[in-house]
Simulated assay, not measured.
Amino acid sequence: MKNIKNIAFAIAITLFAVSCKKETTSETKEVATAKTEIAAENLETASFTIEGMTCEVGCAKTIESKLTGTDGVSEATVDFETKIATVKFDKTKQSVETLTKTVEKVGGGDLYKVTKAEKSTDKV
């Protein structure tokens, strides 16, 4: 019985020590989220409906993250309830068509379908 307690204690200490070694990841995230400014004359906003989403965290947030990480995109929001994505992007780097393809490629390309795509030029 004493050996079992010692083994359990050693495993617990090992797990605790291993799980606390992720200090450098926050620095990496800060660098990855840095975006360049988009000139006002190049800023456009696109809105489109995304069919096929089944949950907010697994679908909407994944799509939002993929869009936000795309070069030339300054901001992206995906509303699960209304199924509408709104993306602010640099028209010299992206288009509604490329953003549509980005969404439709998420999850292997057979989960999501973009409909009712519209764009407008933001007046800043």
Rank of each mutant, 00 (worst) to 15 (best):
K29C: 09
S120P: 01
F80Q: 08
D79V: 09
T77C: 03
L99E: 00
A117S: 15
F48I: 08
G109N: 07
K105W: 04
E81R: 13
A39S: 14
V31W: 12
K83D: 03
V31A: 15
I13G: 10
S47W: 03
T25P: 02
S74Y: 00
T36E: 14
V57E: 13
K5R: 09
I50Y: 10
Y112W: 06
D110I: 08
L43C: 06
E41C: 04
Y112S: 01
V96D: 06
V87K: 01
K123F: 01
T36K: 15
D122R: 04
I11H: 10
T14V: 02
A85W: 02
F9Y: 08
A17K: 09
V57P: 03
S120A: 08
S19N: 12
E75D: 15
K35S: 09
K2H: 07
L67A: 00
K119I: 01
N42Q: 10
F16K: 05
I50T: 12
T82K: 13
C59M: 10
K35W: 03
S65F: 05
T45L: 11
A39N: 08
V73W: 01
C59I: 02
I11M: 14
N3G: 10
E37D: 11
E51S: 12
D90Y: 00
T82R: 13
Y112H: 00
F16Y: 08
V106I: 11
T14I: 13
T121C: 01
C59Q: 01
L99T: 00
V87F: 04
I7P: 05
V87C: 02
E75S: 15
F80M: 10
K35A: 11
K116T: 08
K123Q: 09
A46Q: 02
K88T: 03
E41F: 05
D71H: 05
T25I: 12
T45D: 01
N6W: 07
N6F: 08
G72N: 05
K101W: 04
S65V: 02
C55T: 11
K61T: 04
T28N: 13
L15R: 05
F48K: 04
S120N: 06
V96E: 13
G107Y: 04
F80P: 04
V103T: 04
N42A: 04
S47R: 14
